[in-house]
Design a protein around this nucleic acid. Structure first.
Lengths: 220, 220
DNA sequence: CATAAAATAAGGCAAATGCCGTATTGAGGG
DNA sequence: CCCTCAATACGGCATTTGCCTTATTTTATG
């Protein structure tokens, strides 16, 4: 691995210069380009191939999230690390969703930034401690949310036959007895009988309730 | 911050000794206790208060995931870091869900483990690069799943009045006209009129379809 | 092969539903 | 002050639905 080529994107000229100077003391990397917003970055990428882009979030014209999304769309292999003062959860979310592989706060020491850049190149996902913790929390919460909607039961639990599940699907599609009969090539009377049996097995008394159970358990 | 007290949990005696020796060269930490499985760890915790626990995953009697869950249940503030050779996604998932705040692979250098322990104590969530990347991927995937069920519209889109949404909720609860009328202190005829109006606005022709739209858009 | 379970079919009836009117009242906006 | 709209209310009617019964055929399953 040779010298790491870094692209810097930040709308604040002072910060941009500071970061640039702080990083340029390291022989392990070189500043490939500087951009002052997302659009500018996209433009710069036309004649630069940085190993990694350090991206601010809040910028005029095109913010870091959008820019990340667009850059990753054009080149999915481009490594992008968010470098920002923001640690708002929704922004972390959006950044990760957009394709960022790392997320550092601006108060990290230059040596630490260098270490993180190397980790990123190496296929890792370096994050500032606070960010990493929030990421885990998001993951945990999402899991909890999914678990709530769990407790699904299979049709077999209710002794529903294959045909009855099929009928249930038709009911869920809003069809009436005649339409169900037509689609399944049976008489309307038979369709109704099936549905009566379904009601008994599910302990319900209307299409509406039957469909709700079907949907809750993801049979439809 | 004084010396970091570390609890080690691993069923492999050789590994346990190796880790212990590798870490004991640092003055910044001390080995508080060693345990050979989850149950043993729980027992040891009765008379030890380590700052952090380094936990293996695959162990007999009680594995690291279960042990983590139980330890966090008893003391939510206990910091636990998984230290394992496994990097299977589902295990990472489970470990995070169980309450682990960090996840390191066993091939990390001792100095790196120390740094991660310090980061953990500091409120961070240190992870080996591969793990961190997988964590992000999981988060991204979950997001994508949630986005699919998006495209929700507000009741206002359909010009539904407040009362009509209220009626819709009752319908979704499986009530018939009379029951709705009772609960809202109006006549059954009025309830039916409301529902007729709802049908027109939603372009549907049955309770079932109306409720499905309501559920799809999360009005209920 | 026997037997049970599932799928098919039909008749009948009361209640619920969907759809068509009309009409009054009160609140809010131009 | 007028006008609209939401909310209230009622009558009628055709259709759908939920529930009851019985019965034949097909399909596993031991």
């Amino acid at each position: 691995m040779g010298v790491i080529k870094v692209g810097l994107v930040d709308d604040n000229p002072t910060l941009l210069r500071n970061i640039s100077q702080n990083l340029s003391i390291f022989d392990e990397l070189e500043i490939d380009f500087k951009a002052i917003n997302g659009l500018d970055a996209l433009d710069k990428l036309n004649n630069h191939q940085p190993d990694v882009i350090l991206m601010d979030i809040e910028m005029p014209a095109m913010d870091g999230i959008e820019a990340t999304r667009e850059i990753k769309r054009r080149n999915p292999n481009q490594k992008i690390m968010m470098l920002t003062v923001l640690d708002r959860e929704d922004k972390i979310f959006d950044a990760i969703k957009a394709g960022a592989s790392g997320y550092l706060l601006k108060d990290e020491k230059p040596s630490r930034i260098l270490a993180c850049l190397e980790e990123l190149i190496d296929g890792g996902a370096p994050m500032s401690p606070v960010i990493a913790m929030k990421t885990l929390e998001m993951l945990r919460n999402q899991q909890v949310l999914e678990q709530k909607t769990e407790t699904v039961q299979s049709p077999e639990t209710f002794n529903l036959s294959k045909r009855e599940v099929e009928i249930l699907e038709k009911i869920a599609n809003g069809l009436n007895y005649n339409q169900i009969a037509e689609q399944l090539f049976i008489s309307a009377k038979t369709a109704r009988k099936h549905i009566e049996n379904i009601y008994q097995k599910l302990h319900v008394h209307s299409k509406l309730e039957a469909v709700q159970i079907a949907q809750k358990n993801r049979w439809v």
